[in-house]
Amino acid sequence: MDQSSEPLFFTALQWETVAAAAARIIPTDHDPGATEAGVVGFIDRYLSGIDYVYANPWGSGFLRLEGRQAEAWSQRIERQQRRYQDGLRALDELSASVFGSDFRTLGPEQQDAILVELSGRPKPEPVVLDGDVGAADLTQSTEGVVLSQPVTDEELDFFSTLVLHTRMGFYGDVAYGGNRDQVGWRTIGFPGPASLADTHGRYSTMDYMEEVDYSQRTASHQG
């Protein structure tokens, strides 16, 4: 278990199980993975209640939800808690029936085999640049959602929830407790803001943009 944080929601065993699963979803290689980013702590905090839903604009704490909004989020978090309780139980049952042991004690290949089983889909294959133009097969995307709309965790099964939450814990702002030392951002080359407060007019991407001489571009311009 991570020594720096006490679980707010998970039991010690659940914490280890989620940490183990997250470490297979975003594995550690020559770059940090879910383990180094502190993903399990991020998920644990989110599931603990409605105190960690929306970071405040400065990243120094969280908004206090009130009234109808608080009721709606309580309902939502309770659903997530049940999803995790049931999902983690199923994960261990599956592990026990296939390999005779709890998920967290399995080796990486065995854990992957269990996650494949849980997901109901083959293990994701590397992207190949084949030069093709091919119609998009939307069923191949785990999230299975309209691609131009954001992904919420509400309508997902347990496995897809775990995948999304792992991404959020790896790539979300550090204010939420994951992406520790911005390791997620550094892994993929995103020079994000130092803090949410920095997004109030200081953080800029102008260095990655260039001026254009529009005198070369006219209404009659072709090629």
Binding site: G33, K123, P124, S141, V151, T166, Y171, W185
Partner: peptide, 17 residues
């Protein structure tokens, strides 16, 4: 980073990373 996506993007594991 969290939500960028394309059809068939590997969802998890080494291929996803």
């Amino acid at each position: 980073p969290i939500n960028w996506n394309f059809p068939g993007r590997p969802a998890w594991g080494q291929a996803a990373k």
